[in-house]
Amino acid sequence: MSAETNHFALFGLEPRFAIDLDELTRRYRDLQQAVHPDRYASASDAERRLSMQRSVALNEALQVLRDPLRRARHLLALRGLEWEDEYETRMDPAFLMQQMEWREALGGAREAADPLEVTGRILDEVSAERRRIIARLGELLDGEGAPEEAKGLILQLQFLGKLIQEAEALEAELEEI
């Protein structure tokens, strides 16, 4: 048993990586309506506080389940595998080398003949890698198991997310010029 709150259970969903986001959103809206403060206008302070807490919990759960990375990490936590990012510094050297190459390319994009083309190409490559990892995570989490391999992929996703953020920020900046 893990101490982690089961966010899936809050929506009456099975704890699986594959998720129907439309269905999730629908259930979220229904549940939020049920705890809406308006319904508690004449309720006691305690009841109002409780409905507020439930609303916050629903919101937090939605944020976790909507994001593939956080959803995957939550699933592993429910299965008893948790960790502190701070101490996870050793990763596949080839993966880190690739990160460095992408960072380098992104850093030099401004000086390139066509900065937007370079940035766009990096974004395409990183996004493709991200999709590949998410697909593999689905296979692992909903099938094969292998929690340690899944953990490694989740850590990789964190790097890719950061990289995509930076590339998009640069792209937005370049488009303004």
């Binding site: 990012d85 701070e86 996870e88 510094t89 050793r90 990763m91 050297p93 880190l96 080398m97 990160q99 460095m100 960072r103 850590l155 964190q158 790097f159 997310g161 950061k162 990289l163 930076e166």
Partner: peptide, 13 residues
């Protein structure tokens, strides 16, 4: 030595 920080995406060689 190649290491990385997943929380912030930093990479160090």
């Amino acid at each position: 030595g190649m290491v990385g920080a997943p929380a912030c995406g930093d990479v160090m060689k």
